[in-house]
Design a protein around this nucleic acid. Structure first.
Length: 543
DNA sequence: ATGGGTCCT
DNA sequence: AGGACCC
């Protein structure tokens, strides 16, 4: 008979990640209370700070009362955190290629093969390392401090699963320990880890003992561990789903187990419902999907108020520049470029006191809906040698903005702007030009005179000119169609993946959605005056 | 809330 | 394009 719990999954969670990156970079901070600030919030803090009563997402104005000597570092530039996360990802890949990243600071590792290799070499371990969950009444026990034989008699009956997972998890606990130790010794980072037979339970296990500790969860204890948990604790059951469940009177996993799968699916949909039902019983066959590269990149800024067009242009530009820098870095490293550009905004005036703004039970905070528009851009547009990409991008993004705020005198009150690029495709060689055509043909355009449409006034101010961009489309259409042929048949980099092997009992992989055929669009030409206007604006962004 | 990301509908 | 989820 096939093993009931064939896999060994390790979940690694870096301790207070942003704060740790700062402490590794500047060891003086290590034993002092440290908080990381973004806007008016301490988004995370180290453990000395937590001991003083500082916590995540604490408003900065509360800090003086609880910890007046808190050292505060600005965390609004994520660059170093991203880089640290990449280093950690690479390090973990040195142990196994099967590493999946979640956010910047969490990683799933499927160590099934590592466990098998180790067991083949007759290197069977006689005990666990780290904590092992043994139920509520027994509490967690630090295994090194116990003085017992390798199968503790008091619990022998309960955790002796005949499928062999007991030995595999024991080996897995040692692998997790080695990984954590090497992570600390090579990069200086401490992490907490959970070890079990599935992703969800490994993740939940790791949360039991933090920081810099690890916990193994044996299958025999999974049901009992999950039973009293609030459904909201289950990964995948977020704010909205837990509210829907609460309206059915369901707040705990035990209550969830007593709801039929049919009713659950009716309440929250087939995908989430089916998965939640399984997870309630600890059944989790989801795979560790090796993380490759980001599928999109975005930069955003939130603020109290942005109500003027020129302010929009200004903020877009200041967001755009670091994003373009990231696109360049990625191109140097991987030789791919994005072909989608997206603008997302949060507009208070569009969502005022409508049903779209919900009240959060905990803080009474507002969730205002974001709206977005995106456009396809020719491959090569983001090539580092396209000197006008900044100008073209602002042009495109302002057009996208006017798609969302269409009326000329429409008032708006933005509180967030996000610019994203997506749909990366290989382009030439890393950092090299597409030699066959000459890179210039992809984006260099002769200046095109724009003619204002008849009823429009010719803009007299710089910012009116920026707004004017949205009316220039017709005048440039002829030159567009003339050049369109060049982009008619872009190389397709969406090759079908080889079929994934599916062992019996495991969930079949989701069929991949077809990408619609690409029809790249020319960037709108920008006049010399518009470029000038942009650069006057740009000069104001970085004085 | 922040400033990112993912996948599903 | 939006919604829900994750950190």
């Amino acid at each position: 008979m096939a093993a009931m719990h064939p896999r060994t999954i390790v979940h690694i969670d870096l301790d207070c990640f942003y704060a740790q990156v700062e402490m590794v970079a500047d060891p003086k901070l290590k034993d002092k209370p440290l908080g990381i600030q973004q806007k008016n919030i301490i988004v995370t803090c180290n453990y000395p700070a937590r001991a003083r009563g500082v916590h995540k997402l604490m408003y900065i104005n509360k800090v003086p009362k609880v910890c007046p000597d808190l050292i505060i570092r600005d965390g609004s530039n994520l660059k170093r955190y991203r880089e640290a996360s990449e280093k950690i990802l690479d390090h973990l890949r040195g142990w196994t290629p099967e590493v999946e990243r979640l956010g910047m600071d969490e990683f799933f590792l499927d160590v099934t093969h590592m466990v098998a290799d180790e067991q083949e070499k007759m290197e069977k371990k006689l005990d666990f390392v780290g904590h092992v969950y043994r139920g509520e009444t027994l509490t967690l026990i630090e295994t090194q401090t116990r003085n017992e034989s390798h199968v503790p008699s008091c619990t022998a009956k309960v955790h002796h699963c005949r499928c062999g997972c007991y030995q595999r998890l024991m080996t897995g606990s040692h692998i997790a320990q080695r990984i954590r130790t090497s992570l600390y010794q090579t990069l200086g980072y401490t992490a907490s880890a959970g070890i079990s037979v599935g992703k969800m339970i490994a993740k939940l296990s790791g949360e039991l003992k933090k920081p810099n500790q690890q916990t193994t969860m044996l299958p025999a204890y999974i049901d009992g561990f999950l039973a009293p948990l609030r459904v909201r604790k289950i990964p995948g059951c977020g704010y909205s789903t837990s509210k829907k469940l609460a309206s059915l009177g369901i707040e705990t996993v035990t209550q969830l187990r007593n709801l039929s799968k049919q009713k659950l699916i009716k309440a929250v949909g087939a995908q989430i419902g089916g998965r939640l039902h399984d997870l309630a019983f600890g059944l989790d066959t989801s795979h560790v999907v090796a993380t490759v590269r980001e599928k999109q990149m975005s930069e955003e800024d939130s603020f109290k108020s942005c109500t003027a067009i020129d302010d929009v242009a200004l903020r877009i530009l200041s967001i755009l520049r670091p994003l373009l820098e990231r696109v360049r870095m990625r191109f140097q490293k991987h030789g791919d470029l994005p072909s989608t550009l997206r603008l997302t905004i949060r507009d208070r005036l569009s969502h005022q006191k409508t049903e779209q703004s919900k009240i959060n039970t905990s803080g009474g905070a507002y969730f205002t809906t974001r709206t977005s528009r995106q456009t396809t851009i020719p491959l090569g547009f983001f090539h580092p040698e396209n000197k006008k990409q900044e100008g073209y991008c602002v042009d495109h993004l302002m057009k996208l903005f006017f798609k969302m705020i269409p009326r000329k005198n429409q008032r708006f009150h933005l509180t967030l702007i996000n610019v994203a690029v997506a749909r990366f495709q290989a382009f030439g060689g890393a950092g090299k030009l597409g030699k066959q055509h000459g890179i210039d043909s992809f984006f260099i355009q002769s200046p095109t005179k724009t003619a204002p449409s008849s009823e429009d006034n010719i803009p007299t101010t710089r910012m009116a000119h920026l707004e004017h961009v949205k009316h220039t489309t017709d005048a440039t259409r002829i030159s567009q169609t003339a050049r369109k042929r060049k982009f008619k048949t872009p190389p397709s980099f969406f090759r079908p993946r080889p079929p994934v092997q599916c062992t019996s009992g495991e969930r079949a992989p989701q069929p991949e959605r077809r990408q619609p055929a690409e029809q790249p669009v020319e960037p709108e030409p920008v006049t010399a005056e518009e470029i000038d206007a942009l650069y006057i604006t740009a000069a104001r962004v970085t004085p």
